[in-house]
């Protein structure tokens, strides 16, 4: 995933067109280039604080404002719009150093439906900070699916700080997956908080593979404020070498018949690993129910033996199990 040497000078001045470099990095990271080039597909490509490409598909309005350190984005999905193709976002910092602060305001109006795929690309990071501050409103009966995948280099010199506050209207659906399984995490400070109204469905999923000296903090908070609201805060971490992680999954059942679940699994696969899980389940309505399960430990022995009994070596068995967990 690391770009060929010579495309940047030591100060981080891009000597090829930024857009082409982003596309190349995006493609190397497994992104769908066709989606970024198609006029039918909504997309937004941002390198550091520059908007390189923005395409509004039918039913979507995007406004951007470049700041000194990043970009402010306003993203609107019009009432009743069912967006045919997933919208592709591509954020990145390609040089070794840089700061990118994304402020995202999302308004998914009532009865709209959208699938957003975000690629965040930092292949050469030695000293990079990527911050995202999102404020998201999902209207009544709207459905918003958000998948954010990070591609980092092997240097670990990156701080990723995604924060989001999400409000989901009546019968609305929010499903998000944050995946950071390529390259070194560096420092991750993930904090998503979601408020669900009546009959809403709120799902947060985080998948992270930590190694070397990675420092990972994950907070998933779900407030089930409406009657019959549903919530799932799920996390899957595999930690190697000296990686440290703390996962805080909190779910609050504040309304009748609200149902929530916190599910955390951390696989410890290194001598210097420190893993913590702090589930918080809170109910203040006698008809609400919130459950949790948290497991921290080495890879399951029986899973290992089962795969080894099919002829896999110990290392191959670990690889199959870990890939499954992070899939």
């Amino acid at each position: 995933m690391i770009l060929p040497k010579g495309k940047f000078d030591p100060k981080g001045q891009i000597v090829v067109k930024e857009y082409e470099a982003m596309l190349e990095a995006y493609s190397r990271a497994g992104g769908n280039l066709g989606a970024l080039k198609s006029k039918e597909v909504g997309n937004l490509v941002i390198h550091k604080n520059k908007v390189l490409s923005a395409n509004e598909a039918e039913g979507i309005k995007v406004e951007t404002e470049e700041t000194e350190t990043g970009v402010n984005i306003y993203f609107l999905i019009e009432e009743g719009a069912k967006i045919k193709y997933p919208v592709h976002l591509c954020f990145g910092v390609l040089p070794e150093e840089g700061l990118q602060e994304i402020t995202l305001r999302v308004e998914a109006q009532a009865n709209s439906e959208i699938d957003v795929i975000a690629h965040c690309i930092f292949p050469n990071a030695v000293d990079v900070i990527h911050k995202m501050d999102a404020d998201i409103n999902i209207g009544d009966n709207a459905k918003f699916s958000y998948r954010e995948t990070h591609y980092h280099g092997e240097f670990g010199g990156i701080k990723v700080i995604p924060k989001a506050k999400i409000r989901v209207g009546k019968k609305g659906i929010w499903e998000s997956t944050f995946a950071l399984i390529e390259g070194c995490v560096g420092m991750l400070d993930y904090d998503f908080e979601i408020f669900g109204e009546e009959k809403s469905n709120c799902e947060l999923m985080v998948k992270v593979s930590g190694k070397k000296e990675d420092d990972i903090s994950i907070v998933e908070k779900i407030h089930l404020d409406g009657k019959e609201a549903r919530g799932l805060a799920k996390s899957r971490l595999v930690l190697n070498d000296n990686a440290k992680a703390v996962v805080r999954g909190e779910t609050y059942g504040n309304a009748p018949l609200a149902r929530g679940h916190v599910d955390c699994l951390e696989i410890v696969n290194g001598e210097g690993v420190i893993a913590r899980a702090i589930p918080v389940v809170y109910v203040n309505d006698k008809q609400a129910k919130v459950t949790h399960e948290a497991a921290i430990g080495s890879i399951d022995k029986k899973q290992m033996q089962t795969l080894m009994a099919r002829g896999l070596s110990e290392e191959e068995a670990v690889d199959v199990i870990v890939r499954g967990i992070l899939k």
Partner: peptide, 24 residues
């Protein structure tokens, strides 16, 4: 011999309570 060595020779086992695999 180890489990893997035996398996590669052609011996295998189906457990009474088989393991479950997430994502596989």
């Amino acid at each position: 011999c180890t489990i893997s060595q035996r398996a590669r020779m052609g011996i295998t086992l189906a457990w009474q309570e088989p393991a479950r695999f997430e994502g596989l």
